[in-house]
């Protein structure tokens, strides 16, 4: 079965690299949203440093909403999802693999882009390290929870805004803990409690989300 899951991962990676522009667009959106804040709020280094962590995280959440749909959209539209469902392999395992690939192709580039964002918003080095750690632990959570909502809305014609409505309230705790970790780093305080809480939420999501995604996909295909 593991060979089979690796096969699914290979397929998804291959498709992702065939559709590079779809991967790059949310990242460009993220970069542009971040650019708006110095222009709209204030370019003063102090202000930017104060709002920086929140801005980066909010922009990351918003841009993730744009890219999430491609997680199951093509497979649903062309019928591949039906074939997955009938392959005899638990759909939850397949969903977990697909979420992992989605995280690799849409959030790892964000991690690579993050030093630039930190420079733009005048974050100090300890703040940047904290930001990177929260992104590392927090973005898989975005993918996992987001996948549930995508699986629920995939059969709907106009799922885009609805996806945001469903997900933004659910992401609020993540936003609170992640930004507060970076704030603590700015004050030279320990921030591992916040990281630990995000880690706990991630573990909870890892345990439950694949089953919720599989169930949602079945409901959407019914």
């Amino acid at each position: 079965m593991s060979a089979l899951l690796i096969g699914i991962a290979q397929r998804d990676l291959r498709i992702a690299f065939q559709q590079k522009s779809e991967l790059v667009q949310p990242l460009m959106f993220l970069l542009m949203v971040v650019t708006l804040f110095p222009l709209g709020v204030s370019p003063s280094p102090d202000t930017l440093q104060r709002i920086g962590p929140g801005v980066i995280w909010i922009a990351a959440i918003l841009s993730s909403l744009l890219g999430l749909e491609r997680l199951f959209r093509d497979d649903f539209n062309d019928g591949s999802l039906e074939q997955y469902t009938l392959s005899g392999v638990p759909l939850s395992a397949i969903a977990a693999v697909k979420v992992l690939v989605h995280w690799l192709v849409s959030f790892v580039p964000l991690l690579i882009l993050s030093p630039l964002l930190a420079l733009f918003l005048n974050l100090t080095l300890p703040m940047y390290i904290a930001l990177l750690l929260t992104l590392l632990v927090g973005t898989p959570l975005l993918s996992l929870i987001g996948a549930i909502a995508v699986a629920l809305t995939i059969g709907l014609q106009r799922g885009g805004v609805l996806l945001a409505l469903l997900l933004i309230p659910v992401f609020i705790p993540l936003l609170i803990f992640a930004t507060s970790a970076v704030d603590s780093a700015a004050l030279q305080l320990p921030y591992y409690p916040q990281l630990a809480i995000i880690g706990a939420m991630l573990l909870l999501a890892l345990a439950l989300a694949p089953f919720a995604i599989a169930y949602s996909l079945k409901v959407s295909q019914n």
Partner: peptide, 9 residues
């Protein structure tokens, strides 16, 4: 059913 899953989440 969909709304039910969302309520549980």
């Amino acid at each position: 059913k969909a709304a039910g899953i969302m309520a549980l989440v």
